[in-house]
């Protein structure tokens, strides 16, 4: 009969794992069969009979959900709740106004929220894939909002370029920071440079959309403020605080 290496009990012939501690089983050494109606001859209680297991086991640990199971429950639960919320707003509008109009905005927002929350959870360990998925979902969400209102169209001229600028900058900064050997004040510096770039890009897009000459004004002030600070942070990081890191700084 197989024997559990931890619990030292005899298991069913077909057992692959111990039902008590979930350890893989091993086959017992051949033993002399004993007559079940005759009491076995034993003696002084030996040390093996009184020994305690080596492991401190909390039996509840076997009932706890694993990380993938927890993620699955979260995804399922959040999907069900999102669908219920969408159906509710659609039903309310249909009931009161007998058409579908404003309710599409909360429906799209809930769907987008679900994507940006659920995708990183579902793709845990595949950060860049999740980032690309969210990057695609954002312009689609804005496009949907634009299409819901046929009286005006702002997505091609304003929405899409701004999203492109923001996402490209965020991705570039993330790529740069992830490649840094030692992250600290230099990461904050990169984020400040990225923020300046976004502001300049947004102002350019807005100027172009309005048909005005492209000329950075308020974004230049942002850049003039941020870039020296970014430079100072880089100087501090690489020349002064050689051993500093964000984790140490903020006790992360």
């Amino acid at each position: 009969m197989p024997i559990c290496p931890n619990c030292r009990v005899e298991l069913a012939e077909t057992a692959k794992h111990c039902p008590l501690c979930h350890a893989p089983v091993q086959q017992a050494q051949p033993v002399q069969p004993t007559e079940s109606t005759q009491p076995p001859q034993t003696s002084e209680p030996g040390p093996a009979a009184s020994a305690y297991p080596e492991l401190a086991i909390d039996v509840d640990q076997f009932e706890r959900l694993t990380e993938p199971q927890k993620r699955k429950v979260f995804l399922e639960l959040s999907a069900v709740l999102s669908i219920i919320a969408c159906l509710t707003v659609l039903a309310v509008e249909l009931l009161i106004e007998r058409r579908v109009g404003w309710s599409l905005y909360p429906v799209a927002s809930i769907a987008y929220l679900y994507v940006i929350v659920a995708v990183p959870v579902a793709m845990r360990g595949r950060g860049w894939t999740a980032a690309w998925a969210v990057a695609i979902a954002t312009p689609l969400y804005l496009l949907a909002l634009d299409l819901f209102d046929p009286s005006s169209s702002w997505f091609p001229a304003i929405g899409a370029p701004i999203v492109a600028v923001v996402e490209a900058t965020v991705m570039a900064c993330a790529a740069l920071i992830s490649r840094m050997g030692r992250r600290g004040l230099n990461a904050i510096g990169v984020a400040l440079v990225g923020a300046s770039a976004v502001c300049i890009g947004v102002e350019i897009v807005l100027d172009a959309a309005r048909g005005r000459p492209v000329y950075p004004e308020w974004s230049a002030i942002v850049a003039i403020t941020c870039l020296p600070i970014a430079g100072a942070l880089a100087y501090l990081h690489y020349r002064v605080m050689r051993r500093a890191s964000l984790k140490k700084l903020f006790h992360l």
């Binding site: 931890n6 619990c7 009990v9 008590l20 093996a48 305690y52 086991i57 039996v59 509840d60």
Partner: peptide, 29 residues
């Protein structure tokens, strides 16, 4: 059903947790 024994007996019995029995049978050797 029986559960695994532990080096430290009598601990970690969560009486107030929903779905938990207030007794357990542990098998070891």
């Amino acid at each position: 059903a029986p559960v695994a024994d532990s080096r430290y007996p009598c601990l970690n019995m969560r009486a107030r947790r929903r779905g938990s029995l207030l007794y357990r049978v542990r098998a070891y050797g």
